[in-house]
Amino acid sequence: MSRWVSFGGAILFLSLVFYTSFSALEYQWNWESALRYKKKFADGWIATLWISTLSLFFAFLIGSLATLCQRVRIPPIRHLSMIYVELTRGTPLLVQIFFFFYVVADAASIQNRYIVGIAIMAIFSGAYISEILRAGIEGVGKSQLLSAKAIGFSEYQTFRYVIVPQALRSSLPALAGQTANLIKDSSLLSVIAISEFTLNAQEVNAITYSSFESFFPLAFGYLILTLPIMWLSRSIENRLRFET
């Protein structure tokens, strides 16, 4: 009970801060014109949902592959994977989007900008997922590896039955966080005119001369996607805490 009271209190406090800020701004709300474009919001939201879903799928493929490559005993492959991860993590997504869209996709003559967008997000997120998985793998205790050795497991069996299950478990919270990041980061695809949620909201903005009437639904739309993922991640984290 007291938990809900304090939670309500926190919400109330934040609402008050927003309210006084907007009062000071003397902002003229005009929800009607923005609401006329609710289909545009819905379309954008759905586009963001499936762009994120597909990107996530490929990001996992790329991320897992990059992690595996870093464990291979062939140095060039290992270095290639390392360079990919570090370059991708070390440069702004915006730069990557422009680079892939105007240089790589153009050279490969890929016309469909949605395919390019999904590829960019998958490559970008894949680098982070690879790092998360690598940390998970390195977190598997030495004693576990010794035990697997003593049992007579081959290297493949050790990886399959000992390392992967434990690494995945310990990586789950971070992977959930990365999923939420991917959804939010996909908003940057608006710069290459992919009509996802953010671009559509900006268009409503421009048509109706409103600003916050389209930005608030935008924020809300992203929260609907990201909050459940964060909750899921938290509950996984709690469950894992009891297990070990």
């Binding site: 004693s143 576990q144 010794l146 035990s147 050795k149 003593a150 049992i151 007579g152 497991f153 081959s154 039955y161 000992v162 299950p165 434990q166 478990r169 297990e243 070990t244």
Partner: peptide, 29 residues
């Protein structure tokens, strides 16, 4: 590896696999 399969080892810290139940820890190998 072949030799290790013919030797059983018990460690100080048990070193069971935490993600498997007791019976699987024994049966899987």
């Amino acid at each position: 590896r072949e030799y290790r399969q013919r030797v059983g080892v018990v460690f100080q810290a048990y070193n069971l696999f935490p993600h498997f139940d007791a019976i699987t820890n024994i049966a899987l190998p």
